[in-house]
Design a protein around this nucleic acid. Sequence first.
DNA 1: CTTTGTGAAATTTTTCACAGCG
DNA 2: CGCTGTGAAAAATTTCACAAAG
Lengths: 225, 225
Amino acid sequence: MATASNGRKIPEPTVARLHRYQVVLRRLHRAHELTLSSERLGELAGTDAALVRKDLSYFRCSGQRGVGYEVDALLAGLREVLGPGEARPLVIVGAGPLGAALAGYAGFEMLGYELIGIFDNNPARVGHHLQGLTVRPWSELPALVAQTGVRLGILAVPAARAQEAADLCGAAGLRGLLSFAPVHVKAPPGVKVRQMDVSGELEILNYQLQCAAGLPARGSDTGAA
Amino acid sequence: MATASNGRKIPEPTVARLHRYQVVLRRLHRAHELTLSSERLGELAGTDAALVRKDLSYFRCSGQRGVGYEVDALLAGLREVLGPGEARPLVIVGAGPLGAALAGYAGFEMLGYELIGIFDNNPARVGHHLQGLTVRPWSELPALVAQTGVRLGILAVPAARAQEAADLCGAAGLRGLLSFAPVHVKAPPGVKVRQMDVSGELEILNYQLQCAAGLPARGSDTGAA
DNA sequence: CTTTGTGAAATTTTTCACAGCG
DNA sequence: CGCTGTGAAAAATTTCACAAAG
């Protein structure tokens, strides 16, 4: 802790926020804004000034007291921590509705990722075109990994296929997986898996509403009208 | 804290895990399993025994020492905390590729949510059919909320429309929003917003891989194989 | 006078350890 | 014995508060 300027020990939630700061700052950069305060950055990114400064303190920081941060300098600093933010390769495994939607998700390219392959083991889907890419069979994933060095994959397959697909990704050489499958996936050796828990998040919202309403943990409805 | 049996003060991460336990237990129930230990439940749900027991301790718990938990009794207990787990109404705002994919996401019905409406303000999409529902214009959302009492919504609109759509949902009477928009959305008054941060999660994975590889925070590529 | 950078306090969440019951 | 239930320790994050710098 407190290993400011150079230690590679940034907490996970901080990394996610740093990314959000980067997005905000890129917008400001395009709008030719030159500087901003931690308070303003916090407001735009959905946190508060104190946390912004704490987050920024994990790497060498370039704010000027009394003035704020230079947009460009901050972006440069973030780039050093988060990586170049351009064309990090990425594959999607699963070309069903969700996979297809994610493939078209306006954001990956904008956010520094380049979708370079879509894979599905359903022969009915192989050969289809999505976002300018041809859906390929699972068997071709290892070759693409070997060829391009891609390390990240998004898992968008049904629950029943999730573990199988994850193991395949691991065997193929992917190192990080973001899983949208609605079941827990055991991480293959050497692979980091993160779960996008849609229904879990809904459950949290639902629970919070119950609590806010002071209901006795039933919460079905408040009556018609 | 330590308000076991009845206090409505369950930590957020615990709620998300309780939901996962529920999913696992339902599968076991269908498979006619009668009991299981905290260790096994942890394994199936992706945590460890100690955390399972701690999570379960937030409400009245029915494990038998030396034996484990009765699947059915645990499910009953979870139902009391998380709600009936059946037909909680839900709407999706945004019928673009992502909204459409989420609408078809095999899981909502299975997980206790009932999708009752899909809204989009793009006239070209209004009238289309998705999952047996007709896409309706935003203007009709308030009426549906008033009619059904639906409180949860999923936001699947482009970044540029996110805030506008969120405000609309708040004005219409929704109380909880799960946003997939790649920008921070300010919560309208009285509304709880949770962000599904796809690219942030990718960023965390990416950062973890950089660290695991011991790279000096650059991590662009390892050379074209 | 404004805004950063940062230790220290507060809070939240997880892990440990073990007493106690079947 | 095996496994639960739980208080206490540990770890991780956020919030606070303020000195220092422009």
